[in-house]
Structure formats: C-alpha cells, structure tokens
C-alpha cells in the first residue's frame, strides 16, 4: 500500500534582506495510514516549515516553496494555488494542523463555538444547529467540562491546556486523514503535556487518523512515535523506526540529542547529561559540507572535503546521512 502522504525533495526558501535562507532544503518523508510519526530537531531546523509547506501555509513573500512534490491521495498538492479552492478543501478536512501557541492560535474576538463550527459548515455543509451539536460532542470527547455551556465562551476564558484541547477538537472536527501537531505541547506545563499527548493518541486511534508530532522533545516521540525523522538545518539526517533511532542511533547529531535526555532510574554517577557543543548554524550562506560538521565530535577529513552526504539505507527502514566509518579518502 502506498503511503498516505509522500513528500519528495521539498525545498522551501525564505528571501530575507540578509540573504537566502534555505529553511527546508531537500526534505523527503512518508506518512502511512494510522501511523504516528515524530519529526525531531532543534529550533530553526525547518521542521515546522516543512509541515507548513505541506499545506502551503508559508507566507509568501518572504517564503517560497521552490521545489518538491507533496503527494497526498495520488495528487501533488503543490500544483494547486495556496489560496485556491482545492487547497482549501484539503486543509482542515483531509489534513488538519495543531499549532504551538495555544494562547495565540485562537481568534480572541470569536467564541469557541463559532471557531469550531465554521470548519464543519464549510467542509461538511452542516447547518449551524447540527454543527453546534457535533461540536459539543467533540468538546466532551477532548475533555472540556460543561461543553455546551462553554460554546459561547471566548478563548481568553480558557487556560492554555484547555485551549489546546479546543485546538485538538477543531483539528479533528472534520475527521481528517492526517493530523499534524506542530510542537503541540511546548507552551504548556509537563502534566498538561502528558495529558494532551495521551488525548491525541486516543483521538487518532479513535478517528483512524495518522499523526505527525513535530517536537524538539525526544521524550515525547520516544513514547508515542512509531517512526522518527531527525532534522538538522533544513535536512533530514536520520530516519527509521523508533527502535532504530533510540537503540541504534548512527548520526552524531542523533547520538548527541539522546545524550541530552535524562532517563528514569539512572543515577547521577552512572551518566551525565551531555549537551551538544556549539550553536545551530546560521542558515544564510551555508557551506556545501555537512552542516553539523562544526559541532561534530567525530568529524573526519572526508566530511570537510565532500559535500553533505545524502540519506543512505542502513537496514530495514533505517536511513542516515553521514559518512560514518566509510573509507577515509574518496
């Protein structure tokens, strides 16, 4: 069975005054049906931009999707106009999104009910009454107490966690095939984080939806994701099943990331948390060699001489973009 969503060689660049920023530079990934996929990387590595590009939600100018294909249900979404009818009929209805900031992602001057029903009215042609009933049901499902009474409340009357629950209800309202959650738990506290993730997992199972979790938190993907893509500076550097990534990480960046995550049951003596040295690269005027090179503790001559290697299959579904222990001289 072909994947539900296939992204090939996606390139999204931003034209800024200081130069061309290659935020996403040749990213390819697949999302299968009913699968939970994690996309991991530091801030600014292009994970959010990749997801926004799938739905063509990049503001242009300054952003521009310069190349690539986004194949969803057999058609390339990038051939459609960002503001056109086809894209609108896919957004929210077939592919839905949850954003990072629950405090600013809801419109402050519209009621929760209004913001939840409009998707149903547009995509499923529901009348206002049945849309409201469906929304009450959805809000109950995501755990909003007194759902009916809260319909006419405004976003500022909800807490951050509750707003994110509203966002989840909103994203799932039209029963999409794919739910993209862009750092859905970054802005809420740890307890709420866990509740929201459990909720999302329950929901995608119930609605038979694929879930993409974009995060910089490896703990989150470890627990929920079946497959993982690790991104660095606009490219995917390693991908594979969750076990591949966690038990057999191959890219120095992935190894570095895992060293920063504390494990339950470990004492201080056994292992120290080791941060990755240095800073993520400035995306303007990048050299052609591996972007992780300046921070890499395993850098060799070949890394400096050759351009950034492309993803190479190791075994099964495990890919990595690194020279690793290949021949020293080309």
């Amino acid at each position: 069975m072909p994947p539900l969503l296939s992204v090939y060689n996606l390139k999204t660049y931003f034209h800024t005054y200081r130069g061309l920023v290659k935020a996403v530079d040749g990213v390819s990934f697949d999302i299968n049906e009913k699968e939970i996929v994690g996309v991991v990387g530091e801030s600014g590595c292009g994970k959010s931009v990749s997801m926004l590009s799938v739905l063509q939600l990049i503001s242009s100018p300054p952003g521009e999707i310069v190349d690539g294909k986004v194949i969803f249900e057999g058609q390339d979404l990038l051939q459609y106009q960002p503001k056109g009818e086809t894209m609108s009929s896919i957004r929210g209805a077939r592919i839905a999104m949850i954003f990072q900031e629950p405090m600013t992602s809801l419109n402050p001057v519209l009621t929760i009910g209004r913001q939840l029903t409009e998707g149903l009215e547009v995509h499923l042609s529901m009348n206002p009454q049945s849309a409201r009933e469906r929304v009450v049901e959805l809000l109950r499902l995501v755990g909003i107490p007194d759902a009916k009474g809260r319909l006419d409340a405004y976003p500022h009357q909800f807490s951050g966690g509750m707003r994110q629950r509203v966002m989840i209800a909103m994203a799932l309202s039209c029963n999409p095939r794919i739910l993209i959650a862009d750092e859905p738990t970054t802005a809420v506290d740890v307890t709420t984080q866990a509740q929201l993730l459990e909720l999302m997992q329950d929901m995608v199972v119930r609605f038979k939806t694929s879930l993409v979790i974009v995060t910089h938190n490896l703990g989150v993907v470890a627990r929920y994701a079946e497959r993982i893509y690790v991104m660095y500076s606009g490219r995917i550097v390693e991908s594979g099943l969750a076990d591949d990534i966690f038990l057999n990480p191959l890219h120095p960046y992935t190894i570095g990331l895992l060293k920063c995550v504390p494990q339950l049951g470990e004492t201080r003596k056994e292992r120290k948390l080791v941060p990755i040295q240095g800073l993520p690269p400035n995306l303007i005027n990048m050299p052609s060699s591996c972007a992780f090179l300046p921070r890499c503790d395993r850098a060799r001559d070949i890394c400096r001489q050759k351009p950034w290697p492309s993803l190479e299959l190791i075994e099964g579904q495990h890919y990595v973009a690194c020279f690793r222990d290949g021949p020293e001289t080309p």
């Binding site: 609108s88 929210g92 900031e101 600013t104 409009e118 998707g119 547009v122 966002m167």
Partner: peptide, 18 residues
Amino acid sequence: IQQDYIRTAWSKGLRERL
C-alpha cells in the same frame, strides 16, 4: 493578517473572503 489565529483559520480550510 500575520497573527497566529489567521494561520489557524487558513489551516481550517476557510476561503480568503471568510
């Protein structure tokens, strides 16, 4: 137009007019 909630509105599949 640059606010997050406008991006949310776009992500819901609403048309520009609305």
